[in-house]
Nucleic acid binder design. Structure first.
Lengths: 265, 265
DNA sequence: TCAACTTTGTGCATACGTTCACAAGCGGTA
DNA sequence: TACCGCTTGTGAACGTATGCACAAAGTTGA
């Protein structure tokens, strides 16, 4: 059961005490090297899910929910509860048996593991349709990723403010990124320009890149690239449509399906 | 050797024959049920990579490249060559030992497996910044995913053309989707509206959804959802920044690193 | 025709991620 | 205090994906 306690509640459970400890700063029992070891060991897939749990938990916290069980959180995040508990165990053991997890404790520990205690300024390169959308996207700043710089190769755009930030010319990428301490670069250029932009970002010291261009970027080992390819997503969906249709056809051949009826595998 | 030398001067290799067969239509040796069995067995991760190979191969074909080895293609796609060969083996054995793969043959077979021989009309719901960008995104139509309908809840937008297509009111979603045979729905609404929009798409018969809203959608089993969450991508990058910084700190503690020097793990 | 060389396709071992199932631990209650 | 019921945390089993390494199968050149 999710319990929604009002602000005036004074029952101090051990979980609540832990919450206080955690927000007071994560020092005590766990040394910095322990955190390091743990971070190194977290599977990539689990990291992605932790980010999702964090979003769900933030929403719950705003609704005044203080405690949640693995079963409930798993439901809200769309995963199996065993998987959720294992994922959380990578972060540390901050649950209370018989009760569940304190929402605030989890939030602060997941934020710590994901490195969200630091500020991560973002630079968007390529102010076309997508670049505009990204510059105006409210989801970034609200989650600790302020858009600090915009770049485009078109001189007509230089100086024009988009989403409150003036566009810089791409030639200034090195100085501007250094000055504004950009740690994440977002490439929203046409594919032809992507590799060149990437190289410039890297030489400007950016070590993390989010790439929307449908190109495989070549980068040094120490640079982390994540790719968002809309066409690939579409094609994966297309594959599932086709597979489903094939299965349906197969079932019909086997006498299971009937005429125009949609088969649900 | 069955190497026929015809009246002309052209040497017809077995690889070239296969190319001809394939473009003539994939019937012959492989029955429809074989394709079905194979499609069922392809791992999700491999499907995503196949889409990438397809893009690379299309580019090569435009450049006039007719043949490519697994090593080269793997390099261009950013994967290990053994993995690439295994992925392609899910599609079928269309390579020629000692030579490589015929580009056109591969393209046509991957397209078949991914279901790209059918048309997949797309509907975009939520014509905000992102919706605009998606409606104007050239990558969709050029890859066989025509944007056939746009929807928004704002009556002021209704009828306004975006990217050449007039926006419909969201209340007309069922009739418009049916009429234009929409098979993929793209949700680009604010998170609060996403689940409701999703439900409407599903009841309109859409079985594949690409969701940009930071919400876990609840759908029936027979509906396929793919999620693109920009904030999650950012947080994964953030995790890597933090991990890298931690490792660097650890190395410094162990006496390896020096002052301001960037540690490359 | 044959031998040398190239590249595919795949069996096998390893690593990784997921799921199950249950002991351990905690809060509540008498 | 001692017990009971609930939920976490995790060992162990399973399944899936990855990478190696090599036989099979093709081409090329003499």
């Amino acid at each position: 059961m999710v319990d929604r306690r009002g602000a005036g509640d004074e029952v101090v459970t051990t979980a609540a005490k832990r919450a206080a400890d955690a927000s007071a700063e994560s020092t005590q029992a766990e040394s910095a090297s322990d955190v390091r070891e743990r971070a190194r060991a977290i599977p990539e897939a689990a990291v992605a899910r932790l980010a999702v749990y964090l979003r769900v938990l933030s929403g719950l916290a705003e609704q005044g929910v203080t405690t949640i069980s693995s079963e409930e959180l798993a439901g809200a995040a769309g995963v199996n509860s065993a998987k959720l508990r294992k994922d959380l165990s990578y972060v540390g053991s901050y649950g209370t048996r018989g009760v569940g997890y304190d929402v605030e404790v989890l939030v602060s520990h997941i934020e710590r593991i994901l490195g969200l205690t630091r500020k991560h300024s973002v630079a968007v390169v390529g102010i076309g349709n997508l670049g505009h959308a990204l510059a105006n996207y409210g989801g970034f700043p609200s989650r600790g990723f302020p858009v600090a710089a915009l770049f485009d190769i078109d001189p007509d755009l230089t100086g024009v403010p988009v989403g409150g930030i003036p566009v810089n010319h791409i030639d200034d990428i090195t100085s501007v990124c250094a000055e504004r301490e950009v740690s994440i670069g977002v490439i929203a250029t046409p594919p032809q320009a992507a590799q060149a932009v990437c190289d410039r970002l890297v030489s400007a010291g950016v070590q993390c890149i989010l790439n929307f261009a449908p190109v495989v970027l070549q980068v040094p080992d120490y640079v982390e690239v994540r790719k968002v390819d809309l066409a690939v997503e579409m094609q994966i969906l297309s594959f599932h449509v086709a597979r489903r249709a094939d299965e349906a056809a197969g079932d019909v051949v086997n006498g299971v399906g009937v005429d125009g009826v949609v088969i649900r595998p």
